[in-house]
């Protein structure tokens, strides 16, 4: 039994399998492994990226939290066990590859903004997102302006007017406004092979 589990683990992490299932080629996966090794050994050399190591890699500071980095960590941690393992890292980062389908990027962004994971983006979630954006950007806006931005958002996206944004409405809006998904592409990933020392 142990032998079978080991084989499954090897297969799950195997660069050829990951290459077949993601936008990366095997050489890029090897380069990502170097990056993963660096990130996952920053605080504890255990082959797993903790939230603190993720924040350290992202901000150069393990205490520098943000709603957006928390949400990305939660989505990268697809097994929800509080750490990111290599296969999760590669599979999740694939959506940020320049050649990943726009529909996959839109679906990932929807999950990111659906903070409470209800399957819809609701007014309260949009408000939390705006306030987090203002906080991170060190900007201040009056509550009236924030409410007006929320109204505008729902005018633009909530096409059936039910007060919440579903995946179809989001997909339609993102297709009409591809700049919304700009942050869903990491140009570095196309150059992953040169990241390897």
């Amino acid at each position: 039994m142990g032998c079978i589990c080991t084989k499954q683990q090897l297969k799950y992490d195997d660069p050829a399998v990951l290459a077949a299932e993601t936008c990366f080629n095997e050489a890029e996966i090897e380069a990502l492994h170097e990056l993963f090794r660096k990130l996952s050994s920053a605080l504890k050399d255990d082959g797993l990226i903790s939230k603190e190591e993720f924040q350290l890699g992202l901000f150069r500071n393990s205490k520098n939290q943000s709603l957006f980095s928390d949400r990305i960590f939660q989505l990268l941690d697809s097994k929800h066990d509080g750490v990111i393992e290599f296969a999760e890292f590669v599979r999740s980062l694939s959506v940020f590859h320049p050649e990943a389908p726009q529909s996959d990027k839109a679906a990932f962004a929807f999950k990111l903004y659906d903070i409470w994971e209800t399957g819809f983006i609701e007014r309260d979630e949009v408000k939390v997102l705006i306030l987090a954006f203002l906080d991170e950007s060190e900007l201040m806006l009056s509550d009236d302006i924030v409410e007006a931005i929320i109204d505008k958002t729902f005018e633009d996206v909530d096409s059936n007017g039910d007060g919440k944004i579903d995946q179809e409405e989001w997909k339609e809006f993102a297709t009409r406004n591809p700049s919304l998904l700009k942050n869903m592409t990491i140009p570095y990933l196309k150059l992953a092979t040169v990241l390897s020392p």
Binding site: F59, F133, E136, V157, M184, Y188
Partner: peptide, 28 residues
């Protein structure tokens, strides 16, 4: 027709910001 043509919507605001920028992970 839109009632607030001069306002930006929340997703455009966040999409243009660096809030979701993951490039820090790749910089040495």
């Amino acid at each position: 027709s839109p009632k607030s043509p001069n306002l930006i919507n929340a997703f455009q605001l966040i999409g243009m910001s660096s809030c979701l920028d993951l490039s820090g992970l790749f910089e040495k």
